[in-house]
Amino acid sequence: MNIWVLIHAIIISLSCSLAGAFLVLRHRAMLADAISHAVLPGLVIAFLITGSRNTPGMLAGAIAFGFLCIFLVEFFKRKVKVTDDASIGITFTSLFAFGIILVSKYAEQVDLDQECVLHGEITFSALQRMHFPFTQWMVPNTFVTSVFTLLAVVLVLLAGYRGLFITSFHPEYASSIGISIGFWHYLSSGVASMVTIVSFEAVGAILVIALMVIPSATAWLISRRLPEMLWKTTMFAITGSVAGFYLAIWLNVSIAGTIAAVLGVQFAMVLILKGSFRHRSIH
């Protein structure tokens, strides 16, 4: 199996897990679930219009639906007084259903099928190659987008570290000193949607959720401070995707599925170990 596929998986897992960390810290993990389902119609529609995948159009379409999802969740909650989690549930099931209908209706035109929506096509996308800018490397087609997404995530994280920290920890205090909570809320959900969209095609809806939530939740169990949690998050994301990748190849099963399962096992192990070494535990 190609080494680029593994590198690609690692890069995706890094951007997903870092972007997801702030959803987890804000107790909005299920929003990752929602966004990862909700972007599907955007992908399909943009594909139908532009006629090709992996274009800025597709990205724009998906981002639009990511924001539509966040907006609708808030709208149903505020204006119609639907409970918070029901609002999430209604929004993403509906958008996802709409996407699936589009996929099955235009199955011939759209190079996506129901299978790919779930599993992603990380191995398949490796078949189409292109030059990585300024190098001799032949890399999978979607690889370049993933790299730039990771760069963007890291940049937002470094520049916005303090804003993300204070608004996640104590929104009321943050707004009392004049920091806009809305801006940081939409920034963190916006980054999460962007990452979802870029990763969706490669790894499918479910692994996106797993990557966004599980590594940071695992890291949170054994971290005292935010920087510590963030680097541990990246460690768990990398170990999970490497172990999952080789296990999947050895068993000849879905790579995305195996990585998600391995991340779950990692989490369970940390939780168990932490419990048995309670006297040394941090929390």
Binding site: L25, F165, S223, R224, R225, L226, M229, H283
Partner: peptide
């Protein structure tokens, strides 16, 4: 402004100095 204590999650990864 000093909000009520319950307005934060005290399990947040931060120490006193943070």
């Amino acid at each position: 402004y000093v909000p009520q204590r319950e307005t934060v999650d005290w399990d947040f990864p931060a120490d006193v100095m943070d």
